[in-house]
Write a protein that binds this DNA or RNA. Structure first.
Lengths: 208, 208, 208, 208
DNA sequence: CATGAATGAGTTTTCATTCAT
DNA sequence: CATGAATGAAAACTCATTCAT
């Protein structure tokens, strides 16, 4: 029922400003603890202005999710298009994910929010967007893995669906730890360690 | 501020009932969306009774966290005590984690809650408990890994701290995906896949 | 979904107090212009107290309607039970209606509210209560009229349903004029005039 | 405060359009529940345009009232001018009222609005217009009745003021029942019944 | 004349917490 | 120990009105 409003240039920029502030606040304080007043105060506008752009708190949250997921996922899909050995692409993929997470702190926090906010409290749209995100992410990974298995670079011992789930878990889990512990696990060294684990496992071969 | 109250047998059982209900509700609906009224209604007692056992909503949440973490972590520490090759113990550890997650759905949901509820909204106690859990979990894992590395069964190529972080991420991430997608990723087959990945990596060796 | 709450004696009286105030206010200012704040301020209680007794503004309005209609209609039904000539009972009926309207100014205003408040804005319960009231009122009148027609005291020239509608109109219409003009049309003299009109019409017989 | 603005032809038609839409909406949803946004949306113009024609929501409502009352009352006054026996004219009057109500559904709804909207919420102008309408309506009727009484066609037993009040009540009351019950009481058969009641009363003469 | 974005006071509603009984 | 009515600060949301363009 969202009527896409045509906004003037100024309207566009103001809306963007709101989105920025909301992103910051949701990321910092969480969904519930962020009030419309907070968002409005940050933008120095009247409360009604917020409701001119969105019909509810749900709606702006949903828009943030959609926006960020889209750019996130499409960046990954771009890698998939490349003509390169799958193993290399998989590493690029993770490198890229890592880079993006490092680069876009706010985006990280939002994705954290996505996966952490109890979807039951939201309208079904949020649920749908969330599921879409995971589906598309998994699809990309499964494709990578299957390509790699066909190509012979990735072991056929592990089920592709399972492996995709595990890889997603690692990404989500790293973000969560970041958030909870308020530390920085997403630095290059961590990426290298991760790649090493994925490449060779953690057991000493001769002991296998 | 916490005065350890001496409870009668009836009081004990009533308190336990409250905890059960609260655990269910927090797990289902999240922290904010679960009201004291919800908890009280589920237990068929007066609201004042609730406040006799706990001074605030925070406090019961904190108690649930503490309880569950304690039993969770101590189970893992038990494994650490055993006299067995480290590699075997590490596999036992993950098997145990998997089993516990499968067995204690509610506990899963609570851990999910822990990592997802924005700690900033809570008093510092919740923050402390959360950090403690992660610290102890990480400590156990780091110890395992270092033992394995000394023993020669675990590769020295990967930094122990990094590896611990990755392992925790996998556990957290699996839980989150469970929760968000409302599917069941925590079945034995997944555990097998995970162990296989950790043992040998995902790359075909001859390609290394 | 209304859970009938068991109230203490004090609770009962406080609820009654709220109802009184709300009745006054709705009658004076209308439904929309009466705010929860108004009602609460009049009762010198916290706003939450109001929401302890009713879940919404709709709900207290509905309760007022139901209460007042019930006592209003049941008084009329009592007359119907009496063993008297129908013509006399009909006059009693109107006398009673007149008396009640005169006696219960607030009730008048509420009935005014009922018939005047645009039901579309309310939940369907208000609609149902309103329709029920009219149905029961019409039913009583139709019964009276048909009894009178059988008995021979009321003319068979007029359709009973139509006549009932006309009689209701007179009652409603008098109330409305009272309200709008802020005058007092409901005095005994007016009742006498009304009975005279109904008895003999307004035309001079020889001219018919 | 009202400055009579000179409007272009386009302005005139646009204003008329607004009035039409507002009439529909007020009639359907009531005064409060109809928002300026509703009116503007229905007319596909900007909100500022609305405020160019009227200074407030009150004002357009007032204009609608004035317009409709004027045409309503003047039609009745025309009948009064006619050179005919009073009894016949009275019947014409009611026939005309009935016809108009049937013909102009929207007008009905507005008159309904007039008598139902709590005048206290409005500025005094609305109150004045409403009172004027009733006064003029009553005046016409009283004149009719007194003429009839002089002429000998209407019984002198009933006070002319009282009778006028009763007749107005019938009209208002029928409209209200229409509105509330969402049925059609304003058809010709009802008019016939009403005239019969007024002519001869409802009692069997021999019983008088 | 026309637009529609911006405003903010005002309204309904929620819910953790207290306290008299 | 137990109850549940009472509280009120805080939150989401509405809408008549204004004004820069």
């Amino acid at each position: 029922m969202k009527t896409a409003k045509k906004l003037t240039a100024k309207g566009q920029s103001r809306k963007k400003e709101f989105l920025e502030k909301a992103l910051d606040l949701f990321g910092e304080k969480g969904y519930h603890a962020t009030t419309i007043d907070d968002i409005v105060r940050a933008g120095a506008t009247g409360k009604g202005t917020f409701y001119w752009y969105w019909q509810s708190k749900d709606e702006i949250f949903l828009e943030l999710l959609s926006n960020k997921f889209e750019s996130y996922i499409s960046a990954l899909e771009n890698i998939q298009q490349m003509k390169l050995p799958t193993a290399d692409k998989l590493i690029m993929l993770f490198t890229e994910i890592g880079n993006m997470l490092v680069k876009y702190r706010k985006l990280c926090k939002l994705i954290y929010l996505l996966i952490s906010t109890n979807a039951d409290e939201f309208n079904s749209d949020v649920l749908k967007v969330t599921n879409d995100y995971y589906s598309r992410f998994r699809k990309i990974l499964v494709q990578f893995i299957q390509d790699g298995q066909k190509e012979g670079s990735i072991s056929r011992d592990v089920d592709a669906q399972h492996l995709a789930t595990i890889l997603i878990s690692i990404v989500d889990g790293l973000l969560l730890q970041e958030k909870v512990m308020n530390t920085n696990y997403l630095h290059p060294k961590m990426g290298e360690s991760l790649i090493r684990v994925l490449r060779s496992g953690i057991m000493v071969k001769s002991a296998g």
